[in-house]
């Protein structure tokens, strides 16, 4: 386990080498947060509170929503898919496979290092700016606990999804299209930008069949205290169900993919 942590440390340190990038990505995050908050304040200031299926929504709640969802997008974004593609195409995966380690765990810990870096140098600055400029709602202790719990589950769902798509490069030439596709699906069906309570009915129905809302929308609706405790349990069950399903798909693909893998030269 210790040496897996070393992978996380390596990523952290190598990212630290490019300071300009760190600065620019903070700017990038803050800029998009400003856009979101401005849109919601323009909309809500003209109508006051908005009644939805999940209760009244005020401006402060939407601002909190925007800050949280920016935060989640920071810790969630990863390049697992492209890394898979790169390793399989160049044949480097052969080298990784003969090392005494589990390839997926290695990816997971690399991701972890990446995340720790982004939490320190992107999430914390952006959240601080968000709180100072706009303010944020604080949930009850219980909701905060379930928020983090469902958030972690959501991150696991996202990680397995990227693994599944990345592994498709065993069969496909390029998978960057799939990477974009996943992001586009997330953009709309996860509630990343628009909370599901503003959706037309048909989109709510579609998103109920997809795992994406469990990554963004469900944790945030718990944070904003829009769901009852029964529904919290429901969300947890759905998340665990999706994790199991995706995990099984992932295992099957991995077994088949490794068998199919042919590395030339290297």
């Amino acid at each position: 386990m210790i040496y897996y942590l070393q992978f996380a440390k390596n990523v952290f340190q190598s990212k630290l080498a490019y300071r300009m990038n760190v600065f620019l990505s903070i700017l990038h995050r803050i800029a998009s947060l400003f856009v979101e908050v401005s849109i919601w304040s323009a909309i809500i200031s003209q109508t006051g509170k908005i009644s939805t299926v999940m209760g009244m929504i005020g401006l402060k709640e939407m601002v909190t929503y925007a800050i949280l969802s920016t935060g989640i997008s920071i810790i969630i974004s990863s390049n697992t898919i492209l890394e898979f593609e790169n390793k399989i195409r160049t044949g480097q995966i052969a080298m990784d496979l003969i090392k005494p380690m589990k390839f997926k765990l290695y990816l997971f810990f690399e991701n972890l290092g990446n995340n720790l870096f982004k939490i320190t140098f992107e999430l914390i600055p952006v959240v601080i700016v968000g709180i100072l400029c706009f303010g944020i709602d604080i949930p009850s202790k219980e909701n905060a606990f379930f928020f983090f719990l469902t958030l972690i589950n959501g991150m696991i769902i996202y990680f397995i999804l990227t693994c599944i798509l990345g592994q498709l490069s065993f069969w496909l030439l390029t998978v960057w299209h799939l990477d974009k596709l996943l992001n586009d699906m997330l953009k709309i069906f996860s509630g990343r930008f628009i909370p599901l309570w503003f959706f037309p009915k048909i989109f709510i129905t579609i998103s109920a069949f997809l795992p994406f809302r469990l990554i963004y929308f469900s944790p945030m609706s718990i944070y904003l205290e829009k769901v009852s405790s029964i529904e919290v349990g429901n969300i947890l069950i759905q998340q665990i169900g999706w994790i199991l399903i995706l995990f099984i798909i992932d295992m099957i693909l991995w077994k088949k993919g490794i068998k199919k893998l042919v590395v030339q030269g290297g």
Binding site: N21, L24, L27, A31, F34, S38
Partner: peptide, 18 residues
Amino acid sequence: STSVASSILNSLRGFIDY
């Protein structure tokens, strides 16, 4: 710096979506 710079451009472009 270019990849990050261009993602900044994208988010700036987001400003004029509305």
